[in-house]
Computed example of a mutant assay.
Amino acid sequence: MAAGESAPKQGRPAPDLSALERVQVELLAPPQVHAHEARATGKPKVVEFRMVIEEKTLILDDQGTEVHAMTFNGSVPGPLMVVHQDDYVELTLVNPATNSMPHNIDFHAATGALGGGALTIVSPGEQVRLRFRATRPGVFVYHCAPGGAMIPWHVVSGMNGAIMVLPRDGLKDRAGKPLGYDKVVYIGEQDFYVPRDKDGKFKRYASPAAGFADMQQVMRGLIPSHIVFNGNVGALTGKNALTAKVGETVLIVHSQANRDTRPHLIGGHGDHVWASGKFSNPPEQDLETWFIPGGAAGAALYTFRQPGLYAYLNHNLIEGVLLGATAHFQVEGEWDSDLMSQVEPPSPIR
Rank of each mutant, 00 (worst) to 15 (best):
M1A: 09
G4P: 00
L20D: 07
V23C: 04
Q24M: 02
A29W: 08
H36M: 11
R39M: 11
R39A: 15
A40W: 04
K43W: 00
P44F: 00
V47L: 13
E48G: 03
F49W: 01
R50Q: 07
I53C: 03
E54G: 09
T57V: 15
I59M: 09
D61R: 06
D62Q: 15
Q63Y: 15
G64W: 15
E66C: 03
V67T: 01
T71V: 00
S75G: 03
V76H: 03
P77C: 14
D87V: 07
Y88F: 14
E90M: 08
E90V: 05
T92Y: 03
T92A: 14
L93D: 00
V94Q: 00
N95L: 13
N95H: 13
S100Y: 05
M101G: 01
N104H: 08
G112N: 15
S123M: 05
S123R: 11
R129I: 10
L130Y: 04
R133L: 15
P137V: 15
P137N: 10
F140V: 03
C144F: 02
G148M: 04
N160W: 04
A162P: 07
M164F: 12
D169R: 04
L171W: 07
K172C: 06
D173F: 06
R174N: 07
A175L: 13
G176A: 04
G176K: 09
K177S: 11
D182S: 10
G188M: 15
Y193W: 06
P195D: 05
R196I: 04
D199S: 14
K203E: 13
Y205N: 11
A206Q: 03
S207P: 02
G211F: 02
F212C: 10
A213D: 15
A213V: 13
R220E: 11
R220V: 01
L222H: 05
I223N: 11
I223R: 11
P224D: 01
H226T: 07
V228R: 02
V228E: 00
G231Q: 00
K239F: 05
A244T: 02
K245N: 11
G247M: 05
I252Y: 14
I252T: 13
H254E: 10
H254N: 14
D260I: 04
D260R: 06
D260Y: 13
R262D: 14
P263H: 09
H264R: 15
H264C: 12
G267M: 10
H269T: 12
H269I: 12
H269Y: 12
S280T: 14
S280Q: 09
Q285F: 01
D286N: 10
L287Q: 02
L287Y: 02
W290E: 05
A296M: 15
A297C: 07
G298Q: 03
A299Q: 09
Y302R: 06
F304R: 02
P307C: 01
P307N: 03
Y310A: 04
Y310V: 05
A311N: 11
N316G: 12
L323R: 14
T326G: 01
Q330A: 11
Q330W: 13
E332S: 14
E332N: 07
G333V: 10
D336C: 09
S341P: 12
E344K: 10
P345Y: 02
P345V: 07
P345Q: 04
P346V: 13
S347M: 08
R350W: 07
R350Q: 12
